[in-house]
Design a protein around this nucleic acid. Structure first.
Lengths: 209, 209
DNA sequence: GTTAGCATGTAAGGAGTTACATGATTTT
DNA sequence: AAAATCATGTAACTCCTTACATGCTAAC
């Protein structure tokens, strides 16, 4: 009962918050926002949409009614979904939350994808929470690795090494993002070059690679 | 009915092939062999062991019977599992297979973890299959990215960029491993720089980092 | 003597997949 | 005219998780 991941629903809310869409288009966009690049199946998507309609978070408007303004629209039988007032409220609630669930593997990517609509403090808390989570894991794996080092063959070792390196790389990525967020915050709150902890001074409003 | 992933069972077979173990210990070792570093729950492990016993792949010997040689063993009530002849055969069958399933996300790590027991041709085919799989995905994502580039906010773009970079990094990792496999293959058969072709019989079977 | 870790399991349920089923539209 | 893609959905199933339940052993 406890510990719902529910990664799909927030992703749908977020995409529909940007623009109304029909299911087929949603599905294509979802793999960018969901972790990794795997495509979600319709067998998951449509039942989820149905349930969300049932709970009043979204409404599906059949596009065959009320013909759209431009003449070139022979496409029928597609249902365009959009957020209700309740759905918007619900999404806002999700965006403002920054509990531990936000920085778990399954949820982090979705939360990050909608950072543009998230306020700066929440962004920073999630990034830092994620960073802590990863370094904890790193520490844990390194300790268990130290105990069983010499008993592993070279391929298993290589796999472990590569895994550790991936996580380390992700931590460095987060470091860059965190630096950037702090830089932005300082510039927006205060014009002068006040030394707030570290000396970053990023002028642009976006993460830089 | 089609398309079983069954990543757990091969992993258990592989670990028990190295040494007999009880469930609790298996679980600790599994997260190295399974992708990422997450721990598997007992709720998955024990039913799986039970089913494997039922199918005659492994046997669980209660360690309370037949007291072990060394005197310092007061630990009771733990069931040590080991492979049966049928289990060994089944595992050998898995190891020699190199179909498309072997290089999918869920299976690749497990297959790689037991490369030390896999013959050189199969290793190479799996590594190359995985590489092709990843570059295909890369191409696909890049194309869909090109179509929706300017409509995304900077955080979504950053997420996409980071994802692409992760996959690119994985491809480079595979390139190194493939080079290594080919290098080993050539050096052991022939000292001269013969163009690979059909040189086999690897002696030193390990990747170097 | 109580907390932490070892050790084994079951029951209920969540989140997603594949396979099936249907039909319109666009491209070749 | 056929094939690919667009578009929506359902039913059965798989894999795995959480929560529950139990008891022993080591450390503090």
């Amino acid at each position: 009962m406890r510990g719902r991941s529910d990664v799909l629903e927030p992703a749908i809310l977020g995409l529909l918050h940007e623009a109304p869409m029909h299911g087929y288009e949603l599905r294509k966009r979802l793999n960018l926002v969901l972790g990794s690049f795997r495509a979600l199946s319709y067998g998951s998507l449509y039942p989820c949409l149905k349930s969300m309609v049932g709970r009043g978070l979204i409404v599906g408007t059949d596009s065959s009614q009320s013909p759209p303004p431009h003449a070139l629209s022979g496409k029928r039988a597609r249902i365009v979904y959009e957020l209700t007032a309740e759905g918007k409220e619900h999404f806002a609630g999700i965006l403002s939350s920054s509990g531990p669930a936000a920085w778990e593997d399954e949820n982090f990517d979705v939360r990050f994808a909608f950072f543009a609509q998230t306020d700066a403090e929440t962004r920073l808390r999630i990034l830092e929470g994620r960073r802590t989570r990863l370094t904890e894991r790193l520490e844990q794996v390194r300790q268990s690795a130290a105990r069983t080092r010499e008993r592993l063959d070279e391929y298993t070792l290589e796999l472990q090494r590569h895994g550790l390196e991936s996580v380390e790389r992700e931590v460095r990525w987060l470091d860059g993002l965190i630096d950037n967020e702090r830089g932005n915050r300082r510039t927006t709150t205060d014009g002068s070059g006040r030394p707030t902890g570290t000396d970053t001074a990023a002028g642009a409003d976006a993460p830089q690679h």
